[in-house]
């Protein structure tokens, strides 16, 4: 049971990473990752909505008739997003202003409806919790990676502290959507390259193992 839960959770981080593998949630990924802090904030907000809505969908999965399930899921997701948005505006006004219209847009983030439909509505709450939490963490990590790279080149540092030498002229393109697309493209390419190297390594390993078994 624990092993299954662990599998449910870990796949959201690497093998089925929502941003680099499933290419879902592109809108907030590209729009708000102008800095590491923004990445964390959006990631956490999305994670909260993901976990809360997946949990709720899973709990009431036998009560919602199939025909209205999407409508039902959307009501649930929209409610949690609005709660998150109001909470952010009330307690972190600066962050709320920076993230702007992209917080309400979490409602249409494909990851959330996708996981609700594909997993949470078909499995027990505890498994739905593991799955959605994994996706949320994977999403947040991706945003943090993207955000820190963009912030590093756009301001010369991360979280306000300068890292690159003073002679480095800031790359303005990194603040803009164009820079987001470029960075994301390169990261996806890097991801795929690592993934294919790991896969071919696994194949040669297993081939070596098979020859060993044959010889023994």
């Amino acid at each position: 049971m624990i092993k299954q839960l662990y599998q449910d959770w870990i796949k959201g981080i690497w093998r089925n990473n929502p941003v680099f593998v499933q290419l879902l949630g592109m809108c907030p990924t590209l729009a708000v990752t102008t800095s590491l802090i923004n990445g964390i904030a959006m990631g956490c907000a999305t994670c909260f909505v993901l976990v809360a809505s997946s949990l709720m969908v899973s709990v009431i999965r036998r009560l919602i008739p199939g025909e209205v399930r999407i409508a039902g899921f959307t009501i649930i997701i929209a409610t949690f997003v609005t709660v998150a948005e109001l909470f952010l505006a009330a307690n972190f006004p600066l962050l709320s202003k920076t993230l702007g219209p992209y917080v309400p847009l979490i409602i249409v983030n494909c990851i959330i409806l996708g996981r609700a439909e594909a997993f949470a509505s078909k499995h027990s709450p505890i498994r739905a919790l593991a799955d959605s939490f994994g996706m949320g963490v994977g999403f947040t990590l991706s945003l943090v990676l993207l955000g820190s790279i963009r912030e590093l080149f756009a301001t010369g540092g991360i979280i306000g502290t300068r890292i690159l030498p003073a002679s480095f002229e800031n790359w303005v393109v990194m603040i803009m959507p164009a820079g987001a697309f470029l960075t994301l493209g390169f990261l996806i390419g890097l991801f795929n390259m690592i993934e294919s190297k790991l896969k071919s390594h696994k194949v040669t390993m297993s081939q070596g193992h098979m020859t060993q078994v044959k010889n023994s």
Binding site: E169, W171, V172, V173, M174, G179
Partner: peptide
């Protein structure tokens, strides 16, 4: 185009 976006003043 990339340079224009990156270093608008230059």
């Amino acid at each position: 185009a990339f340079l224009m976006a990156n270093y608008p003043r230059w």
